[in-house]
Amino acid sequence: MTDFTRRDAFKITAGGLAVAGGLVAMPSIVRAANYPSRPINVIVPFATGGYNDRLSRAFMPYLEKEIGQPMVIVNKPGAGTQLGNSYALNQPADGYSILCTSAAPYIPLTVLLQNAPYKVEDFAMLNLPSRDYTLAATSAGSEIKTFAEVIEKLKADPGSLSIGVQPASADYANMILAFQAAEIDPTKLRIVTYDGGGPARNATAGAQVDVGFVGGEGFLPLKSKIRPLAIFAGEKVDWFPEAPLVSESGLKTDFVEGSQRGWAVTTKLRNEQPEIYKFLVGAVERASKNPKAIETLKLQELATTWYGPEASDKAYLDNAAKMAKYVDLLK
């Protein structure tokens, strides 16, 4: 085993170089034919333990089976997903990196409010199974029973109730839109800002603030500590059926959909490697429709609904357009 000469080493190196050179020179069509030949990175622009991280880890085994290659989760948290998004865009468009992210509202928000160096259209959705909506809620022991009551009280005196919300979020836009529709001057309200949905929910459940406007899904474990007043959705939400729609309060208001979470790639990949893109769409679709995946993820309160790339892209771009329309409310 020890008769390994320098010449052998040279041969191996040269061979390696030749193979590498060949790979570089190989037309992309051939690469697509062999795809996937190595593990695929799943970029999650959030820390371990968040919704997207859990979604990616729970869904991964089913997706791996469809793709036929192992997957590696890469957490790239920071700056409201801007760091992870930039990282994803910097990867070669070869199909070996895909995103599991809260596409809306984070991608539009980083573009509109943080001047992120990319465009909303730089990302192409595969499927966005999880849809969250703004929920106006109060603590379980509160005297307030309906959203109409909130409007009435604030109309009489805008300072009578305190309101908890995360600034520069879809929830914030929905809150301002609702109060504008009710002709309440938002500048006179007592608005308390929280740097995340979690703290805003805790403040609502603990009656720190009278009313909280925050994504409804996160309230599910705390359901017994709050009373839902209005959910900003077009129709009844299946995971929170007891939450009344905002239209039921008699208020006519436009609203922005909350988080849309799921699987995405870069638009560059979709345009340059249509074969790989199609393969990924098919894999996500089959995994999403796998009854075992649906059952497992449901137990973890994770979504698997298959909307498909067209519907997901449309929902995402609509959200981005609405965000852009109301961007002045967010600042």
Partner: peptide, 22 residues
């Protein structure tokens, strides 16, 4: 409450959820 007191318990909650317990 299912609320993380700090970063470490946020990880623990995730572990609970990954085992289908909220």
């Amino acid at each position: 409450l299912g609320i993380p007191g700090g970063g470490a318990t946020a990880i623990l909650i995730a572990a609970f959820m990954m085992h289908n317990i909220v």
